[in-house]
Structures are given as C-alpha cells and as structure tokens.
Amino acid sequence: MSLFLQQIINGLTLGSIYGLVALGLTLVYGILHIPNFAHGALYMVGAFMSYFFMVDLGAHYWIAMAGSAAVVAVLAILCERLVFHPLRHSPPIHDKIAAIGILLFLEAVVQMFWGSDFRRMSSPFTGIMNFDGLIIPEQRLLIIAGAFVLVVALQLFLRKTMTGATIIAMAQSREGAFLVGIDANRVAMMTFAISGMLAAFAATLYAPINLVYPAMGHLVIMKAFVIIILGGMGSVPGAIAGGMIIGFAEALGGFYISTSYKDIIAFGLLVLILSVRPQGLFAKGAH
C-alpha cells in the first residue's frame, strides 16, 4: 500500500512538471497556432540558467529560479519577435522548421558553455518527510506545491486581469480579437514570456531530483506535445489534466510494468489515441 502511495506521489510530481511545460506549450499554440518545438530547449535553458546562478554566482535557489525565469522569458520574447512574428503568414511547415532551428541553436550554445556532461543541481530542500511510513522528499513536495501555486496564479491572471482576458479572447478567436482592438503583438509577446517562465520554473523545480544536461528537453517536450494533444491543443485545463494522466501513467507503468519502457508509455498512448481519434481526445473540432 505504501509502495502504491509512493507511486502516487511520484505520479503527482511528474504530472506537475509535465503540466507546467505543457501549459506553456498549449498557451502558445492556442494563440499563435505554432507547435513550438523549441519549447523543450527553453526548458533546458531554464535549468542551466538556474544552475549558473546557483553554482557559478552563488545565488540562493529562489533567486536563481526568478533570474532563470526572467532570462527565459526574454529569450522566449526574442523568439517570438525575431522568428515567429516574421513567419506568421508563411506556410505552416516553415514555423515548425524555424522552431527546430531555435532548438538546435540553443542546445549548441549551452553545450558550448557547459559541455554535454550530466550535472547535478542542489536545492535547499534536501530533507525527507516521513508520514507514517510514507517517505516523501521535500523537493517533491515543493514541486507539487509549486506547480499548484503557479497554476492558480496563472488562472487568476487569465481570469481576473485585463491582459489575461485579452489572451483568452485571442485564443478563442483571432479575428474577433482584432475586431475589438486587441494589440495582437503585445498579446503574442506576453504569451511567449509566460510560456518561457513556466518552462523555467518547471526546470528549476525538477532539476534537483533529476540531472541537468543539454538534451534534457527532448523527452519533456515530446511528452508535453502528447499531453496537449490528449488535452486538446490550446486548452489550459486540458494541459493540466493531460499532464497528470501522463505523470501517473508513467509512475505506475514504470513501477508495475517495466522501468526501461516507461518513456514509451506516453508515445504509445498518443499513437493509440490518434489512431482512433485523429483530432485528439478532447479537441473541439478542426481549426
């Protein structure tokens, strides 16, 4: 039983991270209809930035996280301005290739500075909590709590602020948004910034119980894509629910079926779903 609960905690942890990454991806997709293949690279840069602030500059974990979020937000805005904005009228294949270009570039730059070694990043939360035999490392609790706080904050921002409302409006109807005079450029930049920040937060939260290396974004981004297809491209609740589904599937599947194939679960699920429902599980219909 306690082993099972342990897997539930693991699933929650994984689901939280996947959910945060998928949230950024789905926001960008909802608003600009770009599948941002470079999102995983932003996640990776987020981890390295935190590592840099902590290890090289000696900053505190929280400071490092904030700094990393700021850097990645700026980076994401640059991507939007310099790459995706000029491509907004191009054939759909072009923005995907450009996103791959960004991904390759960011990975190569990080590799140039830090090499391709696996690095460990510490965090002040190294303790382990014992709830009547159920052992939970503090960092995992932090991940779950942090993701929860971020999701609530994002919801408040989207629902309660003017800027958030414009983002929602534009996600629902781009033409409509133009008609009511929404500054599409500002919304696009804002969305990329939020998406980058979420990626950086997720990376910084997850890095202490994982490793930091240039290719660390690959698996995460692919799973995030699976998640947003599961949850409906552009849907915020869908991204969170999808993140949890994949997180739990991996934790339980990895434990009860096979550890070496646990990464395949998400993709197998995707293949299965898309084979049956080409539009995704909760998709509202074709765009």
């Binding site: 395949i264 995707l270 084979s275």
Partner: peptide
C-alpha cells in the same frame, strides 16, 4: 495512421514515432 492527421498533428506524431523507434 499518421497521414490522417493534419499539419501540426502529423509533425508531432512523427516526432513521437521517431522517438519510439529510437527507444
């Protein structure tokens, strides 16, 4: 299976297929 999917879905699907092959 994959070609029933349009544009982005096809690219994402094949990305995953590529990764399944690797795994």
């Amino acid at each position: 299976v994959s070609l029933r999917l349009k544009e982005h879905y096809f690219a994402i699907f094949t990305l995953c297929v590529g990764f399944i092959i690797y795994l």
